[in-house]
Design a protein around this nucleic acid. Structure first.
Length: 299
DNA sequence: AAGCAGATCAACCGCCCACCC
DNA sequence: GGGGTGGGCGGTTGATCTGCT
């Protein structure tokens, strides 16, 4: 049995708050202070869910809130804290006086995440995309060198070292301009960071180093560092002239292609290999440690 | 000027956890 | 100890705004 609803949702008002409703909450809090929010609608004369009242107060009406734009220092603080603790918005917001978790979350989702992508940095791991791909290849057992078998060299032999693959779509696109933009960056990162060295071995390029962190004097509590300014990094984003598809890159691997026919494979083959590797490792552990065979493992 | 697409952000949803009885 | 409840939290939605064609 699930938890009963906190209010009768069919009979409470929803949607944007009016100035009158705001005034009622402010008047109630001024008189009674913050207490049991489930009783607030009734006592304040509001036809709203108590939870909704609490949210309106904490995210908008609180007198200590800032409503102006985020400063560069606050931006640095969010970036560094997100890098350290992830999407713990309430913890991050606590380091930013006058900001709520909702503010920080919205700012991250609408601005900072896109900035990082534009800089070629994965907003989840805060590592360059190329490094993420390289590490993913290691985890899934995909030797990057094998991709070479399916790479077509340009007729121009002078391009042997450098740009070498033929185009164009990173597989996660649904066709929107934004996705195309991201895909271009993805493809450019692949192109920029996997080049043939003199032994014709595909290697990760030096881009796998995170842009050097610089000291920051933000108002953030922890000792923090900041990313280089967005404008300074933006110029490093390579131009769009990708030469190899990500599908080809994945499908070209002998490990994955041995598991299913190449023509039937999709990008999920890489995921399969990742899962299969884990399952195979588990089986090996169970073989090595027979007592564990008594343990029921539910996948 | 109108229509459209993308960006923004307030508000909601549902899960989780601590607290209380 | 356990069930009920309130509040906190992160993820998502949708209305509105903005800029472009």
């Amino acid at each position: 049995m699930g938890r009963p609803p906190c209010c009768d949702k069919a009979n409470v008002k929803r949607g944007p708050w009016t100035a009158e409703e705001d005034a009622k909450i402010l008047a109630y809090v001024a008189t009674h202070g913050i207490g049991n929010w489930t009783l607030v609608p009734q006592k304040a004369g509001l036809n709203r869910c108590g939870k909704s009242c609490r949210l309106r107060w904490t995210n908008y009406l609180r007198p200590d809130l800032k409503h102006d734009n985020f400063t560069p220092q606050e931006e640095d603080c969010i970036l560094e804290l997100h890098k350290t603790i992830g999407s713990r918005w309430s913890l991050i917001a606590k380091q930013l006086p006058g900001r709520t978790d909702n503010d920080v979350k919205n700012y991250w989702n609408t601005k900072l995440k896109k900035k990082l992508v534009t800089m070629g940095v994965d907003p989840v791991t805060h590592k360059p995309f190329a490094q993420v791909f390289a590490e993913y290849g290691k985890i899934s057992g995909i030797p990057i060198q094998n991709a070479r078998n399916h790479i077509q060299f340009s007729n121009n032999t002078t391009e042997k070292k450098g740009v070498f693959m033929e185009s164009k779509q990173f597989p996660f696109s649904n066709g929107t301009p934004h996705d195309k933009f991201v895909n271009n960056i993805m493809n450019d990162q692949l192109q920029e960071n996997y080049i043939w060295d003199s032994e014709e071995t595909l290697q990760t390029h030096s881009f796998s180093e995170v842009p050097p962190l610089i000291s920051s004097t933000t108002s953030c509590n922890p000792t923090l560092y900041s990313y280089p300014s967005f404008s300074s990094v933006q110029s490093q984003v390579p131009s769009s002239s990708s030469m190899c598809t990500w599908n080809e890159f994945i499908l070209g691997d002998s490990f994955t292609s041995s598991m299913q026919p190449v023509e039937e494979a999709t990008c999920s083959s890489a995921m399969d290999s990742f899962v299969d590797t884990i399952l195979a490792r588990d089986k090996q552990i169970l073989m090595d440690f027979p007592p564990l065979l008594d343990v029921y493992l539910d996948y």
